[in-house]
Simulated scan of single mutants.
Amino acid sequence: MTGFLLDTNAVSMFSPSKAGTSSAFAGWVEEQEKLETIYLSAVTIHEIEKGIRLLEGRGATSKATLIELFLQGLIAGYGDRILPFDAETALESGRLEARVISAGHSPGMADAMIAGTASLRGLTIITHNLKHFLPFGVAVKSPDELLL
């Protein structure tokens, strides 16, 4: 498999609750979607769902509803390009996270799970948080680097 795994922060750039993303990055994503080279992790679905429920808990129901519709669209649109977090991915993520922690970093489980998903499938992570993913030794680029 070759392609790109969008980190949650890259996906959220398209959320209705955000000011938007650069037209150049949006165009790049659109082209890659036509080629079916963009993937999402089930972990990203989890993180967005968690955010929706936290918004609801704070009483921001209108915003939560907009993001929930956005999430439903992601799930429908990406379908089988939403990569599962299965046992093989869990093993890879655990190995990566242990190595990074032993080197003195604190990556957080969600980032380790996304890194493991990308590593196992040979995907490049697209993220604004390069510093979170570089220690894993996986291929990673910022949205800005894609446009050079």
Rank of each mutant, 00 (worst) to 15 (best):
G3R: 11
F4I: 13
F4W: 15
L5W: 08
L6R: 00
L6D: 00
T8R: 07
V11G: 03
V11S: 05
V11L: 12
M13A: 15
F14Y: 08
S17A: 15
A19M: 08
T21P: 03
S22L: 02
S23H: 13
V29F: 05
E31P: 00
Q32I: 07
T37H: 12
Y39P: 12
Y39G: 05
L40P: 11
V43I: 14
V43H: 02
T44L: 11
I48G: 01
E49G: 08
K50M: 10
K50L: 12
L54P: 00
G59E: 07
A60G: 06
T61F: 11
K63Q: 14
A64Y: 01
T65I: 12
L66R: 10
E68N: 11
E68D: 11
E68T: 03
F70A: 05
L74N: 00
L74V: 02
G77D: 06
G79T: 09
D80C: 05
D80S: 14
I82N: 02
P84D: 10
P84H: 05
F85Y: 11
A87H: 07
A90K: 06
A90V: 02
L91K: 14
L91D: 11
G94I: 09
G94W: 04
E97H: 06
E97A: 12
I101P: 00
A103M: 09
G104L: 07
P107A: 03
M109Q: 05
D111V: 00
A112C: 05
A115L: 03
G116V: 01
G116A: 04
T117F: 11
T117W: 11
A118G: 06
A118K: 06
S119C: 11
L120W: 09
G122F: 09
L123Q: 03
T124E: 12
T127A: 06
T127N: 01
N129T: 04
L130G: 03
K131S: 13
F133G: 05
G137C: 03
G137N: 04
V140L: 04
K141P: 10
K141Y: 02
D144W: 05
L146V: 05
L147R: 08
